[in-house]
């Protein structure tokens, strides 16, 4: 009998056949139930480390004031993907950041945007990189764009200085949702944001002074983007690489605000394309942003908010896999 047992022991090692070569983020929207509340939860930004599969999520919610003003709330979490079963999960725990204590006020805070990637486990690895947190707030009744520097320490984002208004971009109208278009113009920083200074919300570009960042410039060249803007409301631009995603209630959608994308090429931005009925509904879809997944996944991660039925109430956050563009 030992003769029969020995070969079995010799071969009893680990290792299993995988059914997926790479991860796949669910291509149909999934309610981000672990962070949503019965109130409005939207306008998010997520910093992720694919090597460690950890992330930090920041978004606007009126949960803390029971439906009154919007403040930023934050979560930390892990991404799980099983190459055997194809199951994808984003597990979260509520996590406070000192940075948000510095920027949250009795006014509304919207449109969070981090300029830097999620820090590696060793914070000093990326010492000295550009770390600015842009957002919009309405202390004077209309939205203005603000900026606050930050650092990463003790596992959280910490403010490095006081928040300040990005004055060259702000007007008596509403400005918000700034997003940097990296390396668009050499030695200048290019950003896009929304403004209703022409009546309806449109998407504008802003170019810094030479050798300066947008948040350092005193004179900024601002121009409405005719390709990205329409006669309807075009809001919440977010740029990842050469792809911009934004919300618009223009014609050609599925009702309410839909999500659209445009690709930047040698001819500038392409005509916006609706992201399709797998993502858009007759309800509102709002403030999308895309997180590139590199070689880890077959598709990229997009998070957006929607007031579609089936959520926890009001606007909820959803995540979905979108094609790499």
């Amino acid at each position: 009998m030992y003769l029969l047992i020995i070969p079995l022991l010799v071969t009893s090692c680990s290792g299993h056949r995988l059914n997926y070569d790479k991860g796949i983020i669910p291509p149909v929207p999934v309610n981000f139930a672990s962070v949503n509340s019965m109130h409005d939860d939207y306008n998010s930004n997520l910093q992720i480390s694919w090597t460690e599969m950890t992330f930090s999520l920041v978004f606007s919610s009126n949960r803390n004031s029971f439906g009154e003003d919007f403040d930023f709330v934050s979560y930390g979490g892990h991404i799980f993907y099983d190459l055997m079963s194809g199951e994808f999960e984003m597990r979260t725990i509520s996590k406070a950041f000192g940075l948000l204590d510095a920027v949250n006020s009795e006014n509304n805070e919207f449109g969070p945007y981090f300029t830097a990637d999620f820090p590696y486990y060793f914070p000093w690895y990326k010492e000295g990189e550009d770390r600015r947190f842009f957002y919009s707030s309405d202390p004077d009744g209309n939205l203005d764009i603000f900026c606050c520097g930050y650092n990463f320490g003790d596992g959280e984002f910490l403010a490095s200085g006081d928040p300040f208004a990005v004055t060259p971009l702000n007007t008596e109208f509403n400005e918000g949702y700034l997003s940097i278009h990296h390396d668009a113009i050499a030695s200048r920083e290019t950003a896009y944001f929304m403004s209703d200074s022409d009546g309806s919300y449109d998407i504008y570009s802003a170019v810094s002074e030479e050798g300066k960042l947008i948040s350092e410039s005193t004179v900024v060249t601002v121009a409405r983007s005719p390709v990205l803007s329409s006669s309807a409301d075009d809001k919440c631009p977010y740029i990842t690489g050469n792809v911009m995603v934004f919300a618009s209630d223009r014609e050609g959608g599925f009702g309410g605000f839909d999500l659209w994308y445009s690709v930047y090429g040698s001819q500038g931005w392409s005509a916006p394309v609706n992201m399709g009925d797998e993502i858009n509904t007759e309800y509102d879809e709002y403030r999308p942003f895309v997180v590139p997944t590199g070689s880890w996944y077959l598709n990229d991660l997009m998070i957006f908010s929607s007031n579609r039925p089936g959520g926890k109430g009001g606007f909820d956050l959803y995540y979905v896999g979108v094609p790499k563009r």
Binding site: L8, T11, S12, C13, S14, G15, R17, L18
Partner: peptide, 19 residues
Amino acid sequence: DNTRPAFFDATATDGFFFM
């Protein structure tokens, strides 16, 4: 009959697996 060979798979985490 029982056997438990190892097979190479370039996309597997360890580059091979037992079946």
